[in-house]
Write a protein that binds this DNA or RNA. Structure first.
Lengths: 199, 199
DNA sequence: CATCGTATAGACAGACTTGTCTGTTCGGTG
DNA sequence: CACCGAACAGACAAGTCTGTCTATACGATG
């Protein structure tokens, strides 16, 4: 009925290329022509798969979201204590920082290029950040849920999560590791403080 | 020799317009033609004052930097305790959040659109963030400098500052106030903890 | 008055943008 | 073999972009 790589092959090549270019150069600075030439796809094929450039951006963000959450789950799932889980969470960024040309969070950068709050791209970014926050609550800090007042737990989650995002942005600005190290340390300190330990 | 508004008047109009448009729409999405038409300036006049669009961006960032630091100094300078100074620092963002169409930190957004680490625009952003960090150390948390080990103090500054930037980005994503509130609370908690108070 | 600096308006060049369209090639299926 | 869907190459449209250019107007100073 269908060959081994009929409808999906060029589509995947396009998303792969877009993933690289949108992330490294930004959305506005990356043209359709560059995407199609670097992914070895005809322009007509491109528009057969994606109605517009923005639709490609959304497809990319959705795929990135899936990869990101899966990798996060894998890394965090190997550990049982909240401390180790936070360390695992931050290890995601340590790895990226060591690569050449660190560009921070693709979602945040993308949101910066779409000024309208109602843009579908912005909705993707919001969804992603909400999901990460929920992940922190459910799979990283879960064991603190019952040892605190419910409002206190939510705030703990928000702070750990804000520190996380702040570190990403700072690391991008300075192109250095210390913001990530500092945020990680601070998160662990907060937890030990929460457990009533003297520091 | 010179009339009351000879060389400076159109230049200021241009920067004013650029300030609004670059901030609200982003750098790439704002064209020179829109800038000159909205500031009521001829194209030749524009290029007489700014060699290129990027030079305008830099001029804008420098001006914004100056305004920002001055306003920060004014607000923080009215208070003597670190707690109140932090509150004053966060009040900068509370005010912006209440305005229509909050767009987060102009510097961070700008950096996202310039992928090259060596870009002069990126250098402006780095300078700004360094200056803010230095301000936190010298004029917000100064009284903790001698009550802690030097490394501990630097880390405290970094954390307070990372929380601050994280809150800005989160608030931009969600278009809500809670990230700022949470970061402010967390910063104050950290300080009270640093003073050895039970929480 | 003549001149000079700064402003204006707007045509223009040349490159680049997204998106459409025509026509060809190729591989699997009836 | 004939057909059909999908991918290919690439011209093309229509508009955008930055930046340059010519020509003109105005106000202050020599």
């Amino acid at each position: 009925m269908m060959t081994t790589s009929p409808i999906s092959r060029p589509r995947e090549r396009i998303i792969e290329t877009a993933s690289r270019l949108f992330f490294r150069q930004g959305y506005c600075s990356t043209g359709i022509n560059q995407i199609i030439s670097e992914s070895g796809v005809a322009k007509a094929s491109f528009y057969a798969h994606f109605p517009s450039k923005e639709d490609l951006a959304i497809a990319w963000l959705r795929q990135r979201e899936e990869n990101w959450m899966q990798q996060l789950s894998e890394r965090v799932g190997q550990h049982l204590s909240a401390d180790k889980r936070i360390v695992a969470m931050y290890s995601m960024w340590y790895d990226q920082l060591r690569e050449e040309g660190y560009r921070g969070c693709g979602f945040i950068n993308m949101a910066g290029e779409f000024s309208s709050e109602e843009s579908p791209v912005r909705a993707c970014v919001r969804d992603h950040k909400n999901r990460v926050r929920q992940f922190v609550a459910d799979h990283v800090l879960d064991q603190y849920r019952d040892t605190m007042t419910s409002g206190g737990f939510d705030e703990l989650v928000d702070v750990v999560y804000s520190l996380f995002d702040g570190a990403i942005v700072q690391a991008q600005n300075f192109m250095q590791e210390w913001p990530v190290e500092v945020a990680l340390k601070a998160s662990l300190n907060m937890l030990s403080h929460e457990r009533g330990e003297a520091s």
